[in-house]
Design a protein around this nucleic acid. Structure first.
Length: 888
RNA sequence: GCUUGGGUGGCGGAAUAGGUAGACGCACAGGACUUAAAAUCCUGUGUCCUUCGGGGCGUGCGGGUUCGAUUCCCGCCCUAAGCACCA
């Protein structure tokens, strides 16, 4: 055994041994309980970043822990390898996207292996390979049969910069999620998956996973689905036979309606457009144009509208109401029309104030209801949006408004002008992309037969390999005649193939099921495989996927259940969302000049080329580039383009994979952001070296192997008993940490145990049998518990302790056994307070009675100083914890 | 604006069925070893006062409950993230 720890030497060795022995390869077995440990798969951009290192270090630690605890642990990895960067590389550099992707995977697989991550590599999948995307297409056909996949012409979110269609999620805030440029609208025929069919299940099944998912993720999903219960109410348009249907959650306020407000795109506007005045038309055009623009998050949008001159009849009161067009009514939500009740809705209030529309209160605080019902006009300072008691509402006067909702809805139903309704914010998922690098949608358009799904036996619809990709306009596939020209699967006549490909979020919906059975040529996976391994026990990834990926995959699971592939509703039992890894960035902003393309853009400088001045607290005072330019600074997500990325390979080279992994876990709790700062990593190296040196000192001594058998309890010195106590307390603490998904505290606990070994100042030569036994117990436990954090060092030390390399931690070791009787101290220190202030500490047996503790405390000299001359009013004794003496 | 987290040393962070605040690490300072440096080991490190025995203050701010509050309650301030006209 080397006297010093050399990461490089042992890491290569154990990585090879693990690979050759298939240490992390698992099969289904009833001999052990299963555990499916999953981390979000990487996009093969070419390089791992620190976020990956963090994510996968956490996952591997947990996989190791569960393995040590006797579970049959499945821990796979794969590649989310369809997507835009490959296509961008093809456009910019003329490379073949498949080759580019394969090369990146090759390199990144090496990076993962050099980190010593324990994956079952036989199960690897990659989305861009035909044996995978074949089943994207298989699922599409199933969903088509089930009516879950359909085509419609719609306005889609369109990013001009990326020449791509975006989902609502990807275009949220009016900016492209990828490039940050404004999103516009465009009319296109698109394929959709009917996520709304499962809207209620997506909400209600959250009860099944509540315990294992962070509330903030569930909340975002709940908001995203946005179910709201209310009613549709039809308002007749006077002097026509038309109706305007509105959606409201507050039908109880209907007597307070002062207008009907519709979106500029509403059917009724279209219908009467020709008869509107030029002024009205101008307002409508303006509102429509504004909607195509970017929504600026900061600025509150000024309410705008115009009276159409049309009148609608309130079906409850018979009152005639003006029909307005308002920019605050959205065509996409509800019916695109609302009844405006300014007294009880803030938006309507604002609108009514601006245009001088009447504001009539019809809901009142219960205690004021009588008074209000006597008054004709009620001036309101602001909208009253709470429930209360109805006033000025005919028959309904005096009724509590919350209960009246149900009755009034029933009334509307009975009289044929309304119905109960539930609406959702969630929209169906548009999956068509005018892109090359994705799964082709398996549909053929035949002149005779129409839209025809490809036959299962013809899957996969293969992506051609040799295509010039220019990045302009329609799908590159449309320009490949060999691809486009197909025969109709039904009639066999020449037909045209769909040239859109699927959103890459389709791939990540079910990839973790493919790991279970990645060679299956017939099915995405065999149901019996899924029955053994899934649901996933623990999923780990960034919370940036809280709504997109994690909603889509829940939707997909429900569809798979209905197809008959799985028997559960929810695919992931526990979800851990890790914080981002961020770092300081330095940049210069291009001033507003003629070129609109680059105006306001940031030009990043790598930190290595920046001279930074800091104040005493480490805050940056100024930063200058090499050529003397004053730079701005920020703390942002680490990435190559911002120049603040850290290369994992470099870290492994300098410090070793084990130290890098320990550091990334130790530096901050997983959920927190991790501000990258290399200073601390040396501490991780030092810790490993300390453990190493200690083990070395004892292993090479003659006493180490000369002693066997467990000594009698009486043979242990007080110090040795203390060491054993620390050992068993540490075992307990580390178990608890893992169970509660903490990774920084168990590292601290291991460091403490290692410090306790150094504090045990008995040299091997002078050690009694009992001393050697206590040290051995501590060291063996330490090494086993080190495995999840620093597996290479742990394997090497384990072999050193055994004196041979016949066994491996990876497949034979068990977590050390916690023994409560040893964790218990002989003597404990009890703090003694006088009037809540700490004044002394007394030593006592852990079994001491309250009376004993009180007597000990009062007998203490320091305590006496603070109590002398005063009257003892009360003594509080908390068993095993503290004594507090209250004096007057 | 709404919602949800979070404010603890120079820094990352420990500790909450209410019970020794600051574990562990980083950084810093002093010492040992060395011709010297690195590495290592030892000591110190919230803050103020001190006759060196100790003592006062201290977990964003102000109140409250309690023998005792970082922890519970009320009211503020700051901050991060998410949502943003969803009727």
């Amino acid at each position: 055994m080397d006297e010093k720890y050399f990461a490089k030497k042992i890491e290569d060795k154990w990585q090879t041994k693990w690979r050759e022995s298939g240490a992390f390869e698992v099969e289904e077995t009833d001999a052990k309980p299963k555990f499916y440990q999953l981390e979000m798969l990487p996009y093969p951009s070419g390089n791992l970043h620190m976020g990956h290192v963090r994510n996968y270090s956490v996952g591997d630690a947990l996989a190791w822990y569960k393995r040590l605890k006797g579970f049959n642990v499945l821990h796979p990895i794969g590649w989310d390898s369809f997507g835009q960067p490959a296509e961008d590389a093809a456009i910019k550099r003329g490379v073949n996207p498949r080759e580019w992707t394969e090369e990146n995977i090759e390199h990144m697989r090496g990076q993962l292996q050099r980190l010593g991550l324990g994956y079952d590599w036989r199960r690897e999948m990659a989305a861009h390979r035909p044996d995978y995307y074949k089943f994207d297409q298989w699922f599409f056909l199933k969903m088509y049969e089930m009516g879950l996949a359909y085509k419609k012409r719609t306005q889609v979110n369109w990013c001009e910069h990326d020449q791509a269609v975006l989902s609502n999620e990807q275009a949220s805030g009016g900016l492209c999620w990828r490039c940050g440029n404004p999103v516009t609208k465009k009319d296109l025929e698109q394929w959709f998956l009917k996520t709304t069919a499962y809207a209620d299940q997506l909400l209600d099944d959250m009860a099944e996973i509540e315990a294992g998912w962070a509330e903030k993720v569930l909340k975002r999903q709940r908001d995203w689905i946005g179910r709201s219960e209310g009613a549709f109410v039809d308002f007749k348009v006077a002097q026509t036979d038309e109706k305007i249907r509105v959606f409201t959650t507050r039908i109880d306020t209907i007597y307070g309606a002062n207008a009907i407000v519709v979106a500029a795109e509403h059917r009724i506007v279209e219908h009467h457009f020709a008869r509107f005045s030029d002024e009205t038309k101008a307002v409508i055009e303006k509102i429509r144009a504004e909607k195509l623009k970017v929504t600026d998050h900061e600025a509150e949008i000024e309410k705008e509208g115009v009276d159409t001159g049309l009148k609608a009849i309130n079906p409850f009161s018979g009152e005639e109401l003006p029909v307005w067009i308002g920019n605050y009514v959205m065509i996409e939500y509800g019916t695109g029309a609302v009844m405006s009740v300014p007294a009880h809705d803030e938006r309507d209030f604002e609108f009514a104030k601006k245009y001088g529309l009447p504001i009539r209160q019809v809901i009142s605080e219960p205690q004021l209801a009588h008074e209000h019902s006597q008054m004709q006009v009620l001036e309101l300072e602001q909208a009253f949006t709470d429930y209360g008691v109805l006033v000025h509402s005919d028959y309904w006067n005096g009724k509590p408004s919350e209960g009246a909702k149900k009755e009034m809805t029933e009334y509307a139903v009975k009289h044929g002008f309304g119905e109960a309704a539930t609406t959702y914010r969630l929209r169906d998922w548009g999956i068509s992309r005018q892109r090359f690098w994705g799964s082709p949608i398996p549909i053929v358009y035949c002149e005779k037969c129409g839209v025809v799904p490809e036959k299962y036996e013809n899957l996969p619809v293969l992506l051609p390999d040799d295509v010039a990709i220019t990045g302009t306009g329609e799908s590159p596939l449309a320009r490949v005649p060999e691809f486009v020209n197909a025969n109709c699967p039904d009639c066999g006549e020449p037909a045209r193939r769909e040239t859109d490909t699927m959103d890459t979020f389709v791939d990540s919906c079910w990839y973790y099921f493919r790991y279970l059975d990645n060679q299956n040529p017939e099915l995405p996976f065999a149901p019996e495989r899924a029955a053994y391994w899934t649901p996933v026990d623990q999923y780990i990834g960034g919370d940036d996927h809280a709504v997109m990926h994690l909603i889509y995959t829940r939707f997909w699971t429900k569809a798979m259940r209905d197809i008959g592939l799985v028997k559960f509703d929810e695919p992931v039992k526990r979800l851990l969302t890790q914080g981002m890894v961020i770092g300081e960035t330095f940049f210069d902003v291009i001033p507003n000049e003629d070129d609109p393309e680059s105006k306001g853009k940031r030009v990043y400088y790598p930190p290595a080329n920046v001279t930074v001045e800091r104040d005493a607290k480490g805050k940056i005072v100024s930063a200058r580039s090499a050529d003397g330019k004053e730079l701005q600074t920020a703390v942002e997500r680490m990435s190559k383009s911002k120049g603040n990325g850290v290369d994992p390979d470099e870290m492994v080279e300098i410090y070793g994979a084990d130290a890098a992994r320990i550091f990334v876990l130790f530096a901050a709790p997983v959920e927190n952001e991790l501000v990258w700062n290399e200073a601390g990593i040396e501490g991780a190296v030092r810790f490993l070296q300390r453990v190493w040196r200690f083990v070395h000192k004892w292993v090479v001594s003659e006493r180490w192997s000369a002693v066997g058998g467990r000594p009698e309890p009486s043979e242990f010195s007080a110090e040795a008993r203390k060491l054993r106590q620390k050992t068993h307390q540490t075992i307990r603490r580390i178990e608890e940490s893992f169970e509660s998904l903490q990774f920084n505290t168990p590292v601290a606990a291991l460091m403490e145990l290692s410090n306790a070994l150094y504090d045990f100042r008995v040299e091997p030569e002078a050690a009694t049998d009992a001393d050697v036994y206590a040290v051995r117990e501590a060291v063996e436990s330490l090494v086993l518990m080190l495995a999840p954090f620093a597996p290479h060092a742990a394997e090497e030390l384990y072999a050193q302790l055994a004196g041979n390399e016949n066994g491996m931690l990876a497949n034979e070791a068990r977590f050390p056994e916690y023994r409560a009787e040893l964790a218990k101290a002989d003597e404990i220190e009890i703090p003694v307070q006088v009037n809540g202030k700490l004044r002394a500490r007394v030593l006592a047996s852990p079994d001491a009675s309250n009376e004993d503790l009180e007597r000990l405390a009062l007998a203490d000299a320091k305590v006496a100083e603070h109590t002398s001359g005063k009257q003892i009013a009360k003594v509080i004794v908390v068993p095993k914890r503290l004594v507090n003496i209250v004096v007057k």
